[in-house]
Design a protein around this nucleic acid. Sequence first.
DNA 1: CCATGTAGTAAGACTATCGTACTATCTCTG
DNA 2: CAGAGATAGTACGATAGTCTTACTACATGG
Lengths: 139, 139
Amino acid sequence: MLGALLRIPFQALVARIHRDLAAAGYGDLRPAHFTVFQHLDREGSRLTELADRAQITKQSMGYLVDYLERRGYVERVPDPQDARARVVRPTERGRDVERRARATIREVEREWAERLGERRVRELHETLRDLAAYLEGRA
Amino acid sequence: MLGALLRIPFQALVARIHRDLAAAGYGDLRPAHFTVFQHLDREGSRLTELADRAQITKQSMGYLVDYLERRGYVERVPDPQDARARVVRPTERGRDVERRARATIREVEREWAERLGERRVRELHETLRDLAAYLEGRA
DNA sequence: CCATGTAGTAAGACTATCGTACTATCTCTG
DNA sequence: CAGAGATAGTACGATAGTCTTACTACATGG
C-alpha cells in the first residue's frame, strides 16, 4: 500500500493548489503546468534545463511553456549567452501564481500539523527530504 | 517544496515497479494499469466500484480494463447478483503481477530502511497512513 | 407494471506525453 | 580557422489516458 499512501497526500495537495488558483482567477492552469513553475528560476531558465529537471522531453516542456506564454504567465527572451537558446521566465502574473501556490502549501502544512502534530509533520518533511536526496542521487 | 517531496518517492516507486514488471515480461503494463490492480479485489470487483475507488470515470476505467482483458490480465464474468453488471477479476497472470508488485514494494521499503533506518520508515508509514485516513475522510 | 435509478458502453474531444527528424548555432580540435 | 560533432529548440505525427454527453439494458420499489 505504500504507493497509495504516497499518492494520496500528493494528489490532495495538487488538487488543493489547483482549487485555490482557480478561485484566484487562474482556472486555466492545470496540474501539468505546476511542474513548469516548480522548476522555473525567478531569473528564467532554458527550456532544455526545465525539461531535464522535470524529467520530460523538450517537446513536452515546449508544449506546456507555449500554453503558459500564450496566457501571459511566462515570457521567452533571447539568451545573450547563446543565440540558439531562449530563457523562459515568469511574468508578474506568473510570479503571483508562484506566491499563491506557496501560500497554499503553507496552509496545507498547517492543517496537517493541526491533525498530526507539529513534530510528526516536521519529521515527515525531514524524512521525505532525505529520501528525495537519496533517490535523486541514484537517478 | 512539499509537493515535490511527496512526488519524488511516489514516482520512484512507480518507476521501480514498472521496471521490475517489465523485466519479468510484463512490459505491456503501464503505470495507469497499476491503479486497476490496486483496487481490484481478488474475488473480483465491478467496474463502477473500481472507477469510484480510483476516482476516475467509468469510461476511463473501462478503457484500462479493456486493455488488461485483451492481454489476459483480468477477465469479466457475469455477476450472478445483477444481470446488468459483470465482475472484473484477475486471472492467474494478473495475480502474478500483483504478487510481483508487492514484492517490489517490500524490497524498496527495505532499501529505504537501510538508508533511513527502520524507525524512520516505520514512522513515515504511520504518518502517511494517518494522513491518508484524514484526507479520505474529508474527500 | 411503471418510474426512476444504476451498470456499463459508445462516440467524440482534449491534454499531456512520446519518438523521430529537422534547423540553427555553438564548441572543440586538428 | 574550418569542419565535425554536440546542443537548443521546433515540427510532425502518434498514442495514452482522461473527460462529457448520451445511450441501452436491467433492477427495484412503490
